[in-house]
Design a protein around this nucleic acid. Structure first.
Lengths: 205, 205
DNA sequence: GGTTAAACAGACCGTTGGGTCTCATACAAA
DNA sequence: TTTGTATGAGACCCAACGGTCTGTTTAACC
């Protein structure tokens, strides 16, 4: 039992610093040794816990990336208030976190999608799964908004979801290294503009 | 003179297939040998023409990437018709090209930005330059639209530019591997919705 | 306190990849 | 034909990296 705890702890440590390195330098540009050196561990330790570098990364996705996405971009919009306000607040906070992050390298998920696209089917499948969860969640949020009367009934929920995901992914790329704060402000401003066009034409609320 | 021509031809061949490989597999995942094998050339040939892999890539940016951006996303919106229509058409065609490209790996520029971010300052500078040119061009296009009366005078030109770049970059990532055609359609539909909200409130045209 | 398995250390291997160096060929000028 | 230079071939060097293998330490259990 205690053994199992130690095992979990070590694996957790490896995964956390692994994600840090993979996010910062990319998967292919991070060697196992880089991570192990940071933790003062050896190859023996690594390959005792994980089958391969790929297996290692898949576990990072399942254990860390999924939770991160949930807490940052999914759970915050699951409330029953005004949907558009919720999404606005959610994006606002997520972007603000990025602005204040001294070591910001863009949107974790989309960065990895870019890196593995066309190179590793297995990993891409896992990443696309997360993307789909996000999409489904946004779609149902918009539908909820339509039901609640905060969004016009004629709005295409799937369209809004795609458009929101697109713009968020893109602005995170744009915010890297060039005026993140200003770009965030402009982005949010236009997002609100766009959201206004989704409100019901005939005020029913 | 004829010598110089041969030199240019060989360099051009290398750069073209170089860009193909870098786009498809990424910069760090493409070896010089990959490119040389494709062209049946040797290392001697490569290092006779280029100083290093980095120098090679920078020249690709200057010679091929910049032109590609200009012809696809900049020149098409430099007309004097309705700005929003021009941008719509421009995006429409660019995305349609991606849909019909069997080997689509996303937006070339943003892919490279993602890959080099935090790893290679020199190359990042070149890529950011292109991004800035695109931004400036979009801003002035919007301003032209405001002047022509197709866009409301109170609209924030820089904001629109950032929002447009963001959404385009993002949708190109989303279109990779998952229903590109459907996502393009939904994206364009919402783009038009957004554009409607930018039109002058009091019809003056 | 001896046994056993989990957890880890680190030398080692095969391959790859950027870059160098020497040598061969083509071709223009003399 | 000879000479010089542009162009290219390909063997070689060295470092990095994923992964293996054997040996060692730690700690739970009887």
């Amino acid at each position: 039992m205690t053994k199992s705890l130690k095992r979990m702890a070590t694996m957790q440590r490896m995964q956390v610093t692994g994600l840090e390195f993979f996010y910062k330098n990319g998967y292919y540009n991070t060697s196992i040794d880089d991570i192990l050196k940071e933790l003062s561990l050896s190859k023996g330790a690594f390959y005792y816990h994980f089958d391969s570098k790929e297996d290692f990364f898949v576990q990072i996705i399942e254990n860390l990336l999924v939770r991160k996405m949930y807490s940052q971009l999914i759970e915050p919009i699951e409330g029953h208030d005004n949907t558009l306000d919720l999404i606005t607040q959610c994006f606002e906070e997520a972007l603000e976190t990025a602005v204040h992050n001294e070591f910001d390298f863009g949107f974790v998920l989309s960065n990895f999608i870019n890196e593995f696209n066309g190179k590793n089917e297995t990993i891409m499948k896992h990443l696309n799964d997360i993307l789909r969860i996000w999409e489904v969640n946004l779609v149902s949020a918009v539908q909820r908004g339509k039901f609640n009367g905060h969004i016009d009934r004629h709005v295409d929920s799937e369209g809004v979801a795609v458009y929101l995901m697109s713009s968020y992914i893109g602005v995170r790329t744009l915010m890297v290294e060039t005026a993140p704060s200003a770009r965030k402000y402009r982005f949010m401003s236009q997002l609100r503009q766009y959201f206004k066009s989704l409100e019901p034409k005939t005020a029913t609320v």
